[in-house]
Design a protein around this nucleic acid. Structure first.
Length: 1143
RNA sequence: GGGCGAGUGGCGGAAUUGGUAUACGCGCUAGUCUUAGGAACUAGUUCCGAAAGGAUUGGGGGUUCGAGUCCCCCCUCGCCCACCA
């Protein structure tokens, strides 16, 4: 018998599996598929670690198990290789990330193969491969097309160490998820993915994932953070003419009568538009909060800060009361509407704020005890809690109660309570300290239901002020230790009042944050919160809305090593997607990888790459150009010539006078006067006809040089539009050499928009394709929403000149000289987007690529997707719950909505694993020096031992400290398996057959449940039984090897081969359980009064009656039962017999 | 502060879901073989007790013939979220 030598065996079989393609899956096979997925690794310089080994082994065990059960299993792997470590390594060592990545991948691949993991290497992918990220970019463009990717400049999370923006999900406790640096806020232009549009779908989808652990679903649910509430507008009154409103979001519209001030987030856009008296101070406050990190904002012991806006007030729409407006950073700009109505009596945060700044509190909801009634027959009382030296003063009214009573006429709360204290206890001139809250209860009295409302105050009294009973009012009062007092109240007629004592004792003022019954709320008083929410929202003109905590996903990073975002910024066309034929946008080589820190990626420095042609303009260049010219001032100086006409006709003596006269005329009679003349006919500038006629008789010149330039442009369709009377333009236009197809003049029948529409209809083109040439601002205003704004062109030689046009058009839209017109059709200056995608992009769809990794036409063939997806089993870490796992569900749902994938949800079952800690129970890290390298373990013990130990350590979901000590146990087990061939024999005792069958059953069940630790113990129990009996048949031995194979592939393959099997053990059929060998005698516990006394062996499924019979007659039991009366006997088949006796 | 989960020997952990608590492994103790053992094998190992027996699943209470498991209160630890109106 040779000695067990893991090294030799392992290398041999690892090579065999690869060359014989044992774990390569077939596409579109007839067999049932099983898609087992494990989160693909980042190939780091230090190699793969224990954190990878655990899920990879788990997935491997399950894959191999299913494969042996006849499924077509795919267990693919790849590399999530974009990311900061490679880039930081590049910065330090000037090695291109591509090179270091390649090296690391080769190394990690060797490790994985060395661990005997049966990945299907034919499907290997790499997110940094342009053939892969072509499709990442393509999917991004799908988002763009769908309007779910957008650019925005705003305050974002910024990591000062990594020098890049971060998504909300990447900030943990105010720190960078990657490097732990405290996250700052920075104003930057960023790309976003509109994940918020999918909030409801992502939430709803969780319902259809029954095989996901509840904890994960809950965590995603909380992260999405749905809440129902109302949006209500508050009118702003103050030193501003403009009427303004502040919209707030609240989940408690029922408390609106208690809203005593409004709070705006410092980022609120309205602040800059308000006329604020204390502008300097508010600006300083806003500036200060901007400079605070989220950690600072919350670390200050939650001490609230804020500043009141002076000179402006808001109106509470519920009661029309004027309330102050504050700015405070406890209101977040990014949630709800960025503004709240503060209800300090019922909200903890508002309460703290109001306390600090001494703002009014108004109680409008109180606790309801019992059911609400339509007619409350209410009786109000005030009570006093008087505590002194640890004792409380109670009044005896047959039962003990707090001093207090009814209001008398015109009394305030304070008057009543002080008076009642005096009358009932004799203590005079008490002082009211704090308000302790109120409650309302309903009790039947005299056959009707009465409501009783109690308000309670803490009152301080002075010994010296006590007087004796002078009249009959004073009742007997006594001091009790507080705890005793509470018990007395609980027993008394006013049970619920003991809570006031607790509050007084803790010196906590009342803050009733729950829902209850409304008071002090006009006609809504008496309603429950639930009813009031709807009714009040309606009353104040608000609307019920749903909000989510989920934020849009900041999707750009200012770093080098990531997928370039495939868009081009053209000065003319704006954001232009890179056309499909130009994908992928390959990451260019740079000299310097260092992030600039200014918010630009290192890519911004490569001018050659950044400056590009606009694909849109390139296409436009060859297309038909649709040009429409506004006649007046654009094609000819009609204004100047009409002045000349007046002079020529003798109405003015010179041009100057003519200008003055005309100016006066137009001032008195605007062009658009649109009045009817005496005959009821609509007439424009009657006088103009004369001039027009005169003008046409003049040598009326259009700008021939301009028309010459226009005619140089190839492939055009031209039309002319004029709002003026067509008489004075028709003639000269006819004479010109302009090749126009339409001329529409006179604004008395059509607006310009309608004229343009008419022309476009004739031209059969979209109105957005039209270039419109004008010389006035008014045209821009009139047309910018109908036409493509970027195609409006200003002609500076016209009526209004350059300056006015500059106010409404950009520099490159204004022609200064006639020849400038050609610039309009030259492609715009275009620059590539230099931001890259975040680390999470490539992994948001990678499992889809496994289905068809080499496809060059689409990211995966639909048929293949249909066969393989959804993923049946997904192993991964808990830390990705609100990152990768949420992101990839979002991408999948989006792709599904676009018809590009075949399932709504990507993963049927998620199996999370606990992390492996260092031997010291701390997270493994280089700095702690507690890192265990799996490869070191392999060297000493062999792979099979390590895999087995990994499985045996504990439940897959538990986090566990790696402990070297126990591994020797699994090594002993492996060696005992290796030596098992010594026991091979023609027959075996029944115990061995039973042990094998039991093991097959248990191992199968536990693998399906990912309970790997008990799989190992079941195998050990089985092995122990074989050793006890020292005999095993070849058939049983084979079965044992088969069920061990998924965990320890190398040794089993070796032994399987040694006993004469030619094909791989993983191509063999998983053993079945022979139930008849599971039938054996079972041990039955005999209990007396539930206490186990004896154990007897009985055949399986012995009837209850027989069990009792046997148990009763069993020696020691019958002795114990002598002389005792058996009251009851319980028997459970195959388990216990219990005699209940009278002691 | 909110949500989720857990607490069983010296240690990692089992327990068919209400039915013999402590399986399996490590460690430890004794023995066998050995020049020797930190190798291997055999036996033992929850605690108290020589034994008979008794106690025991973080603590306290409850339901039940019977509770690690179900219910209530409290304590401790871990994870996630955290001024989300």
């Amino acid at each position: 018998m040779s000695k067990y030598n893991p090294k030799k065996i392992e290398a041999k079989w690892q090579k065999h599996w690869l060359t014989k393609k044992v774990f390569v899956a077939k596409d579109n096979a007839k067999e049932e598929k099983k898609f087992v997925l494990v989160e693909f690794p980042y190939p780091s310089g230090t190699g793969l670690h224990m954190g990878h080994l655990r899920p990879y082994t788990a997935g491997d065990i399950i894959s191999k198990y299913h494969k042996m059960n006849g499924k077509n299993v795919v267990y693919p792997i790849g590399w999530d290789a974009f990311g900061l470590p490679a880039e930081n390594f590049a910065i330090k060592n000037k090695v291109h990330p591509e090179i270091s990545t390649k090296k690391n991948v080769a190394n990690a691949k060797k490790q994985l193969q060395g661990w005997g993991i049966g990945f299907d290497w034919s499907r290997e992918i790499n997110t940094t491969d342009p053939k892969y990220y072509k499709w990442t970019q393509k999917i991004f463009l799908e988002f763009l097309k769908a309007g779910l990717a957008y650019e925005k400049t705003g305050l974002i999370n910024w990591c000062p160490v990594d020098k890049t923006g971060l998504a909300n999900e990447e900030v943990i406790d105010g720190k960078c998820e990657r490097c732990g640096a405290i996250v700052e806020k920075k104003e930057l232009r960023q790309w976003y993915l509109k994940i918020t549009d999918y909030a409801e779908k992502l939430l709803d989808g969780l319902k259809y994932l029954p095989e996901w652990p509840e904890a994960i679903k809950l965590q995603q649910e909380n992260w999405i953070g749905k809440s129902e509430g109302a949006e209500i507008s508050f009118e702003v009154r103050g030193a501003s003419l403009e009427k303004k409103k502040i919209k707030v979001f609240t989940t408690r519209p029922d408390t609106i009568f208690g809203a005593t001030y409004l709070v705006l987030a410092p980022e609120h856009p309205l602040i800059s538009r308000l006329n604020i008296d204390n502008k300097k101070e508010t600006e300083k406050y806003i500036e200060d909060t901007k400079n605070k990190s989220d950690i600072d904002r919350t670390a200050e012991g939650k001490e609230k800060t804020g500043i009141e806006i002076k000179g402006v007030k808001a109106i509470n729409p519920a009661n029309n009361e004027e309330i102050p407006i504050w700015i405070a950073d406890y209101v977040l700009g990014s949630y709800g509407t960025g503004a709240i109505m503060a209800v300090p009596a019922h909200d903890e945060r508002d309460f703290a704020f109001a306390k600090k700044f001494n703002l009014e509190r108004k109680e409008v909801v109180i606790r309801l005890i019992g059911k609400p009634l339509p007619d409350l027959n209410r009786r109000d009382v005030v009570k006093a809690v008087i505590i002194k030296n640890g004792k409380i003063l109670l009044v005896n009214e047959g039962y003990y109660t707090l001093p207090g009573g009814k209001y008398e006429e015109n009394e305030t709360d304070y008057d009543t309570v002080i008076r009642e204290v005096e009358e009932e206890t004799g203590y005079q001139n008490g002082t009211v300290k704090t308000y302790l809250g109120s409650s309302e209860s309903i009790y039947p009295k005299d056959d009707i239901n009465r409501a009783r409302r109690v308000k309670a105050y803490a009152v301080e009294v002075d010994e010296d002020q006590k007087i004796e009973a002078s009249d009959g009012h004073i009742k007997s009062s006594e001091w009790f230790p507080i705890n005793e007092g509470i018990e007395l109240i609980k027993k008394g007629g006013t049970k619920s009042e003991h809570e006031f004592i607790l509050r007084a004792q803790n010196n906590t003022e009342e803050l009733f944050g729950e829902e209850g019954i409304l008071i002090n709320s006009d006609k809504f008083s008496g309603l429950t919160s639930e009813d009031a929410k709807k009714k009040i929202t309606e009353f104040v003109g608000g609307k019920l809305v749903t909000k989510y905590k989920l934020r849009d996903w900041v999707f750009s990073r200012q770093r080098y090593w990531g997928e370039p975002i495939p868009v081009i910024h053209c000065e003319k066309c704006g954001v232009v997607p890179v056309p499909d034929k130009d994908l992928p946008v390959v990451l260019p080589k740079v000299k310097n990888y260092e992030p600039t820190g200014t918010g630009e990626s290192p890519l911004a420095g490569i001018e050659k790459w950044v400056n590009t042609k606009c694909p849109n303009c390139e296409v436009e260049k060859n297309k038909t150009k649709y040009l429409i010219f506004d006649f007046d001032g654009v094609l000819g100086d009609t204004y100047k010539q009409s002045l000349q006409a007046r002079v020529d006709m003798g109405n003015s003596k010179d041009m100057e006078e003519s200008h003055k006269n005309l100016h006066e005329y137009f001032s008195a009679t605007p062009w658009h006067a649109n009045e009817l003349d005496e005959k009821g006919k609509k007439e424009y500038h009657n006088f103009g006809i004369g001039y027009a006629e005169a003008m046409t008789k003049l040598k009326y010149n259009l700008f021939d040089d301009f028309i010459k330039e226009i005619n140089k442009i190839k492939n055009t369709k031209i039309a002319v539009v004029s709002s003026g009377y067509d008489l004075y333009s028709k003639g000269p236009l006819k004479k010109s050499k302009l090749k126009y197809t339409h001329f529409l003049a006179g604004n008395h029948h059509h607006s310009k928009v309608e004229k343009i529409k008419t022309i476009c209809k004739a031209w059969k083109t979209d109105i957005k394709n039209v270039y419109y040439f004008t010389d006035t601002q008014a045209d821009v205003y009139e047309l910018e929403n109908t036409l493509d704004k970027r195609k409006l062109v200003g002609c500076s030689w016209g009526y209004q000149g350059e300056e006015k046009l500059k106010e409404v058009l950009s520099e490159n839209q204004i022609l200064k000289k006639f020849t400038d017109i050609h610039k309009i059709f030259e492609p715009g200056i275009a620059k590539r987007e230099t931001n890259t995608m975040p680390q999470w992009a490539g992994s948001s769809w990678y499992w889809l690529r496994y289905c068809d990794p080499k496809n060059t036409k689409e990211f995966a063939d639909k048929k293949k997707l249909k066969y393989w997806t959804p993923v049946d089993l997904y192993f991964g870490g808990m830390e990705h719950t609100t990152l990768h796992l949420l992101y990839s569900r979002f991408w999948n749902q989006f792709l599904f909505d676009r018809g590009l994938v075949t399932t709504k949800e990507p993963y049927v079952k998620r199996v999370p694993h606990g992390i492996i800690l260092g031997p010291d129970g701390e997270k493994m890290s280089k700095s702690r020096g507690n890192v265990i390298n799996p490869d070191d373990i392999v060297k000493v013990y062999g792979v099979d031992t390590m895999r087995l130990y990994m499985a045996f350590l504990g439940p897959h979901g538990n986090q566990i400290a790696w402990n070297d000590k126990g591994i020797i146990g699994t090594r002993r087990f492996i060696e005992r398996v290796f030596a098992l061939t010594d026991f091979l024999s023609k027959d075996e005792p029944r115990e061995v057959t039973t042990a094998i069958n039991k093991a097959v059953k248990k191992v199968s069940e536990d693998i399906e449940n990912s309970a790997f630790n008990t799989v190992v113990s079941a195998l050990m129990i089985c092995l122990n039984s074989i050793y006890e009996n020292k005999k095993i048949t070849k058939k049983s031995f084979e079965k044992f090897l088969q069920i061990l194979a998924p965990l320890a592939p190398h040794i089993t393959e070796e032994l399987w081969n040694n006993i004469g099997n030619k094909k791989s053990i993983f191509l063999s059929k998983w053993p079945t359980v022979d139930e008849k060998f599971l039938i054996e005698d079972v041990s039955i516990a005999i209990q007396i009064n539930g206490k186990a006394r004896e154990v007897i062996m009985l055949p399986k499924d012995t009837s209850e009656d027989e069990m009792i019979e046997k148990a009763k007659s069993f020696g020691s039991i019958s002795e114990r039962l002598v002389g005792k009366e058996i009251i009851k006997t319980i028997a459970v088949k195959n388990r216990i017999v219990n005699f209940v006796v009278k002691e």
